[in-house]
Every structure is written in C-alpha cells, then in structure tokens.
Design a protein around this nucleic acid. Structure first.
Lengths: 211, 211
DNA sequence: TTTTCTACCTTACGTTTGTTAGATTATTAC
DNA sequence: GTAATAATCTAACAAACGTAAGGTAGAAAA
C-alpha cells in the first residue's frame, strides 16, 4: 500500500513504518468521512489499522496531527489530479471541455481515488480551529486553480457576462462536494453523474426556446 | 421565544416548560450545526440554555431525543416554507419562476429562519442510524415536493429533455445545502446569491452563441 | 396556610476519551 | 549470534462524557 505524503512531510521512514502510517491514515480517513471528527476515537482507528491505540503515538503526536495530515492530503490529491488533467488538454480545447473535464476529475477524486478528499469535505467544518487554519492555504490554492480555469474560459468568451466568477467558483466546487451526501458510486455511474452535472452547470435546466 | 413543534409532538406543556424546551432546542441546533453531533456535549447545550446538564432530562429523554426533534423540525420548516411559497404563485407562473422562487425560499430557510434546517443538513450523516432512519420520512417527503415542482415545469415544456429529473432534484437540493459551507449571510446578500444560483441552475454558465 | 406539583439544581455513577510510560517483541547492524 | 534500534503492546492516568437519583425553591391548588 503506497502511502500518500503531503508536500511538507519529507521525513525519511522505514518501509514498515511507512506502511503502518498509511494504514492508519487510510483507516482514519474512512472513519472520519463516515462518522465525523469527534465521532471517531483512536481505538477505532487503531483497530482498523491492526494495532493498539497507544501504538498510534509512535507514528503521530496526536489525533489532531492525524486529521491535519488527512485534510492536507485530501486537498492536495484533488488539486494534483485536476491540474494534471487540465494541463494535458490541447490549447484548442473549448471552455466547455475544460470545465467538463475538471468536473469529472474532481468527482473522481471524491469517489474513486481515496477517502482523503471526501473526508476533508465532510469534516472540515468540525475540526478544531487550528487544524482548519492549517488546511486553509491548500484550500485557497485549489480554489485559485478553479478561478484560473473559469477566468480562462471567460476570457475566451465562453461564459455569460452576467455570471459572477467569484461566486460561480465556490458554487461549482461546493455543489460537486455535495454529491457526497447522496450519490453512491456502487449504484450509479460516475461518468454519467459528471456528464449530468456538467450539462446543468454549463447549459442549465431550461429549454432555450422558453427561457 | 415561540417554540417550533414537530407534527408528531402534540404534548401540552406549561408556558415555562415550553420556553425552556425552545431554548434547549435552539441552543442545541446552533451547536450541532457548528460542531457536529458528537462534537457537542450536553453541558454545552445546558449552559447555552441557562440551566444545568441534569435539568435537560426533565425536558428530553436523551441526547438522541433532542437531535431527533431538531432534525425533524429542520426538514418540516423548509418543506412548509417552500410549499407555501409555491402554492401562492399564480397558475400563469413559468417553470423558471417556480424554480427560482423555490430556490430563494430554500436558501432563506437555511440562513434566516432558524438553525434547525442547517443543523439537519450538516449533521444528518453523523447521527446514530436510528435517528437518521427516523428523519428519513420527512426527507423523502421534501424531496418529493421538489420532484413535483420539477415535473410540473417539465410537463409545461420548460426543461430540456436530456435532463434526468431524478438526478436534477438531488443535484439542486444538495447544491443549495452546500452554500452552508461557504456563504456568510452577514457578508453577502442572500437575494443575490439566490439569483445567481437560479441563473446558473436554469441557464448555465455558458454563452448561447458558443456552447 | 398548607399541600402538591413543576422546573429546576446538585451530586454522583460508570463509561469512554485522548494520551503517556514502561515493558516487550520484531527487525536490522555488526 | 549478539547488540542496538524500531515498532508495537500493555496498563494506566486524568478528564470528559451521557445519564440517573434525590433534593429544593417557587408557583399553583386546596
């Protein structure tokens, strides 16, 4: 199991310690996502990681340290994925294509790659203030990536002038995150969801004739 | 302070007990919304209600009983508000007008009327399974109201045929709920937010010429 | 005025919580 | 093979938790 490492964390560790850290983070991310920050205790995390609660402290300083790392990894993962996908697009890509691809990639990060991004979305508001503060820089950076995507599309004339880009950016991101509350990737098709989402965001619900 | 009463709860109580119950529910709803279900303890709720933790048990059987009542009241409030608003529209109203009004009213319930609806949105996924189950009927009923709104608009020809109405209903509701994560009604204008939201949902981001 | 009941307070219980320290086992270095 | 280090276990702690039981002040009823 390859371990996710945040940008700040460049500590060298043995393979075994790395694997254990990874199991702890994976287990904690899943639990946090499902039960909230305060709803999860260290004994549950330890049990799911195949160890005792006290052993967690060999790898982490505190519960806050665990959740801090998960929050950062969650944003960094979706940021990296979306940036990579967008950068790979040809210059000839339209604004609609850019936004559609960004939507698909963000949703994939939420549901497919790991639980870190979804855990971040779910528990960010419940976490102690200093933890939230530590995650803010990464969050702003990701929001800024969407700002660039939208403003590039706007410069090329793809976006209606009446649209407030600052609001639209937060609307899109938070709307996608909200799919966590109802969409089940085991029952529905993620690609179809992304298509439906992009269609509504880009073209709206209304017919053109009677709008 | 008038107390919100769920449909099931027809118990007669003295004015004083009613007022105390109301303070407890208001305090708990606010705290749950801000810190999550497990993140709030009964001593905090009691302190904000001007009493001691043990006294809560004169009014409620348990922490679960408190949160159950809050969740129900939250959905019932937004349901009632949206239904009242829609029913007051003239028959000549267009699909766009209906949906726009429903969006505005839902957002107002989230941010203005009380904290019950926002508490529901925030903590529903973290609450014990039996509490979630108890709230499910009210949730389904509210979703069904949106289903009616959208299908009526669709019958009248206002909605693009390619739009999946089942998905669209959940998309709209959860997207509005997601504004809780970033919109601050003390800094932004709620009516403008609702207008922006409705504009994107109904007409999308794209210009018509280059879509 | 006395009695009764309502709406609390006080205190305490058993459990669960995050965390620590020391003992113990597994792995690596020599 | 032995020593050293790394990784984990065991056991316990102090605090915080939901909850229960019995007491009390004030209002209402008699």
């Amino acid at each position: 199991m390859k371990v996710m490492q945040t940008a700040q964390d460049t500590t060298k560790r043995s393979d075994k310690a790395d694997a254990s850290r990874g199991r702890i983070l994976n287990a904690a991310a899943r639990l946090f996502r499902d039960k909230g920050y305060a709803g999860v205790n260290l004994r549950d995390i330890a049990a799911k990681s195949g160890m005792q609660a006290g052993s967690l402290y060999y790898h982490f300083d505190s519960k806050e340290a665990i959740v801090t790392e998960i929050l950062d990894a969650g944003i960094e993962a979706v940021h990296r994925e979306v940036k990579t996908a967008i950068d790979a697009l040809p210059d000839s890509a339209s604004g609609a294509e850019m936004i559609q691809l960004a939507i698909l990639t963000h949703l994939r990060s939420l549901f497919e790659f790991n639980n870190y991004t979804s855990a971040n979305v779910r528990i960010y508001s419940q976490v102690p203030p200093q933890v939230r503060k530590a995650n803010l820089k990464a969050r702003k950076a990701y929001e800024s990536l969407w700002g660039k995507i939208l403003s590039r599309a706007a410069e090329l004339g793809y976006i209606r002038e009446s649209v407030d880009l600052k609001n639209a950016r937060l609307m899109i991101i938070s709307s996608m995150n909200a799919t966590l509350e109802w969409f089940d990737p085991r029952r529905g098709n993620l690609n179809e969801l992304a298509n439906d989402y992009a269609a509504v965001m880009l073209r709206g619900l209304l017919t053109k004739t009677r709008s």
